[in-house]
């Protein structure tokens, strides 16, 4: 990554003005992914001074500032208390603590990374993204849009729910990118998510429809999941293998959330 200048902004207005000033100006979250690329950045815009490192209980939902680190998210008692701590569990499997102390929640979500464990587990919940200056959209909606929204991601809101939850990350070695990640939550309704396929995580609507209309044969649900999921090949594995994994882990996940 090349960058000509860096500004730690003191206000939202300043950040937004800089962002709009040039397409080569970029917001920096944790900066881990930005470092790996060949981006030619004019000005790096750092939001660290904008009080975005809070995780707060807002009644019906938990609000997470976009500069909260993955490690802070993982260790938060509010997050641990949500649906048998599935978000903490998923995040704790990402690299080591020194990595997670650098990576931010906002950076992970905004980047729409296909391999993201965090996006996969968040899709198991109803999640809203708040952008500056004035846009709110669901995580699902954001992921479905092509490209990136040109506002500044300020907060992520997770609607509280009392659900049983399952998360599985499949990777060749523990520090590798996952070749698949699966999240299943069962509250009032089932939510079934598959990510790292290698595309970004998605909800399996047909599988969810089957389950939420009373379908109780988990083998059949897993078969529907493997049929509807769109997978591809990557350097680590074939799409065909990913489908087999979906079959196995959707069934196991459903058993787990019904224990």
């Amino acid at each position: 990554m090349k960058a000509n200048s860096y500004v730690s902004v003191g206000s939202w207005q300043e950040a937004y003005k800089l962002l709009k000033a040039s397409p080569k100006n970029k917001i920096i979250g944790g900066g881990l992914w930005l470092k790996k690329g060949n981006a030619q950045v004019d000005t790096l815009i750092d939001l660290s001074r904008l009080n975005l490192k809070k995780i707060e209980d807002k009644g019906a939902y938990i609000e997470i500032g976009s500069m909260v680190s993955q490690r802070e998210l993982e260790q938060s008692s509010l997050i641990k208390g949500l649906s048998n701590g599935v978000i903490s569990e998923a995040v704790s499997q990402i690299m080591g603590p020194a990595f997670r102390n650098v990576a931010t929640v906002g950076g992970s979500v905004y980047g729409k990374y296909g391999f993201s464990d965090l996006i996969a587990v968040l899709l198991g919940f109803e999640v809203e993204l708040q952008f500056y200056p004035s846009k709110t959209m669901s995580l699902e909606e954001y992921l479905a849009q092509p490209g990136f929204y040109d506002g500044i991601l300020t907060h992520i809101r997770i609607q509280k729910k009392d659900a049983r939850a399952f998360f599985k990350k499949v990777c060749l070695t523990s520090l590798d990118y996952p070749i698949l990640n699966i999240c299943i939550t069962k509250g009032e309704k089932y939510v079934v998510v598959v990510g790292s396929r290698p595309l970004v995580a998605t909800r399996l609507t047909k599988t969810m429809e089957y389950l939420n209309n009373g379908g109780s044969d988990f083998k059949e649900a897993a078969r529907i999941a493997a049929t509807e999921i769109k997978v591809g090949d990557s350097i680590a594995t074939k799409g065909e293998y990913r489908k087999e994994l979906v079959k196995v882990y959707v069934e196991r996940g459903l058993e787990e959330v019904n224990k």
């Binding site: 860096y6 730690s8 920096i28 944790g30 900066g31 881990l32 470092k35 790996k36 790096l44 750092d46 660290s48 490690r71 690299m95 080591g96 603590p97 020194a98 990595f99 102390n101 650098v102 520090l175």
Partner: peptide
């Protein structure tokens, strides 16, 4: 030098971080 091996670890405000991935300006 790609956030993967941990040998560059330092403590930043008492927390371990990967110094290969933290901009000095920060």
């Amino acid at each position: 030098n790609a956030s993967s091996c941990g040998v560059c670890t330092v403590l930043l405000d008492d927390k371990p971080v990967l110094s290969c991935s933290i901009l000095t300006v920060r």
